[in-house]
Design a protein around this nucleic acid. Structure first.
Length: 486
RNA sequence: GGCGCCGUAGCCAAGUGGUAAGGCCGAGGUCUGCAAAACCUCUACCCCCGGUUCGAAUCCGGGCGGCGCCUCCA
């Protein structure tokens, strides 16, 4: 493994060196479950899914013994409480419902299951224990029924986000609270108010602050010092900054070696967010395109950059995905040896056979999926080129070529279906939308075949135009006419 | 106000010192009754101005433009 990762903590690309030889332990902040996920959540989910898949691949090839991936659910939070009150339900009902919806979306997008998916509410005792430790070490103080973290007691505070305690004050956007020693202090434990979920604690009934859950669950499943912690860029401050402060202050150890943060999905260059109202839910988008297209699109730029979402760019992705499946189908269904007997060291074959190596070189460079996909497109063109000019050479090497492709597509989590099945599903979806059936199309194609036989080109073209108006294109092949949706 | 990121072809997008990957769209060609698909060929003075260097999209300084975090947020 010769992986380099951009570490948010140092703002530099670093050579990845697992803390324990042969083991990778990663923790990623999941979602707060109070609503449907939008495609920003999809991006984060997919980015870290690809990272997990990358390590899985390394493991499969013997480069790692173990990969542990933890992704949590935040199921106690102001927003959940609000939603519950609004819908007249309990917080638990809300969180359970949206966990289910989360899985529906993420399964559709082909995310692998993390090894552990802990919920905050299942870890209240662990959180309380950390808070007690912090109070004991004078890093936290009780104020009324609340407990706050004292940021001035922890000198490295602000390292991750590049802020100083003074900077935070200068912002003057921090809510001033009489109970806090410093406006930047944050809640570890909140005394409960009526109508809120509550747990017993040494400080009375209450609920945990947001950040403490990740400290508790990270420590419990991955230890006090683990390799990778990820999440969206927006979590750098305050969430991850505070998490570091709590964990480090409590254990005396730096909690995480590499911090990875993904960029946002933008709409017209602006961050997609609930408050701006410019968001698309995953299921909304999946009504328009198949999940692999959304996935392919989200991987088509580097994970740290912003990625602008638009109809045009989604269409480009769709065309790309279709092209891959078409080539894959052609390659898999290749049967008879054709073409001339050419020398075996065709540069195109060399390119195809070296794609696996070049693909993983791109992935090794801070998970550069955009460049890796570039290598894959070169592969497509070379395969197609041989498909038309020297298929026998391709046939002779097909097993290796397909195996390499499976490795690469596994890591990206795309092109996982049989091409025939992919086209079948696409077609079904489009037919349903148009309320058409195959018989009708077959009948028209028959009719056109007759016209063509009689060299009635006008009649033949009329039928083709008629279908084209519905987005159906015909391809006349040696053994008959096939149709597909544009 | 503080901190930070970004600006590469009509559009999307890699590329952190050696002379611009890849995709979409477009043009021409091969194939085809004509098409479609596929293949071949073509399409960039890297926002501006200075500087460092034999050499800069890449480093430094200054502009201009866009965005993010500092408040819940993937």
């Amino acid at each position: 493994m010769s992986l380099k990762i951009h570490n948010s903590l140092t703002r530099q690309k670093e050579t990845f060196q697992p803390i324990k030889e042969g083991k990778v332990r990663m923790y990623v902040c999941g979602v707060t479950v109070y609503d449907f996920c939008h495609i920003g959540h999809a991006r984060s989910g997919i980015v870290f899914d690809v990272i997990y898949r990358y390590f899985k691949h390394i493991q499969k090839t013997g480069g790692l013994e173990e990969v542990i991936y933890v992704r949590n659910f935040t199921d106690v939070d102001d927003k959940i409480i609000n939603k519950a009150n609004q819908d007249g339900k309990t917080c638990r009902e809300i969180s359970e419902k949206y966990i289910e919806e989360f899985y529906r979306d993420m399964d559709a997008l082909g995310l692998l299951k993390p090894d552990v998916e802990p919920k905050a509410t299942d870890h209240i005792p662990e959180m309380i224990s950390i808070i007690e430790k912090l109070i004991e070490k004078d890093h936290a103080y009780q104020a009324g029924n609340d407990v706050y973290f004292d940021i001035n007691s922890f000198s490295p505070y602000g390292k991750l986000s590049g802020k100083t305690v003074e900077d935070l004050l200068a912002g003057a956007r921090v809510a001033v609270d009489e109970k806090k020693k410093d406006p930047g202090d944050f809640a570890l434990w909140k005394g409960s108010k009526p109508g809120e979920p509550e747990w017993d604690s040494p400080w009375g009934k209450g609920r945990p602050g947001w950040h403490i859950e990740c400290s508790a669950m990270g420590q419990k499943y991955l230890g006090e010092y683990f390799d990778i912690h990820g999440g969206g860029k927006d979590l750098i401050f305050p969430h991850h900054e505070n998490e570091i402060a709590q964990s480090h202050a409590a254990t005396g150890k730096v909690p995480v070696k590499y911090w990875i943060h993904n960029g946002f999905v933008d709409i017209n260059k602006e961050k997609m967010s609930k408050s701006l109202g410019n968001f698309f839910t995953i299921r909304e988008v999946l009504k328009e395109v198949n999940p692999e297209t959304l996935r392919f699109f989200l991987l088509s730029s580097h994970y740290r950059s912003g990625i602008d979402f638009s109809e045009q760019v989604l269409k480009d992705a769709r065309i790309g995905v279709e092209r891959f499946y078409r080539t894959l189908q052609d390659l898999m269904s290749l049967q008879t040896k054709g073409g001339s007997e050419r020398e075996q060291n065709d540069p195109r074959l060399e390119l195809i056979l070296s794609t696996h190596k070049r693909f993983f070189e791109e992935m090794d460079d801070d998970f550069n999926t955009a460049a890796a996909i570039g290598r894959l497109f070169e592969w497509v063109r070379a395969v197609n080129s041989l498909l038309t000019e020297n298929p026998s050479l391709l046939l002779a090497n097909r097993d290796k070529i397909l195996q390499d492709f499976r490795d690469m597509s596994f890591v990206l989590g795309v092109f996982q279906q049989d091409p025939g099945r992919h086209f079948e599903k696409e077609t079904e979806a489009r037919l349903a939308k148009l309320n058409m059936d195959r018989r009708e199309i077959a009948r028209l194609i028959d009719e056109r075949a007759k016209a063509r036989k009689n060299k009635d080109w006008a009649g033949s073209d009329a039928i083709r135009d008629q279908l084209a108006a519905k987005g159906i294109v015909l391809e006349d092949k040696p053994d008959g006419t096939v149709w597909k949706f544009q």
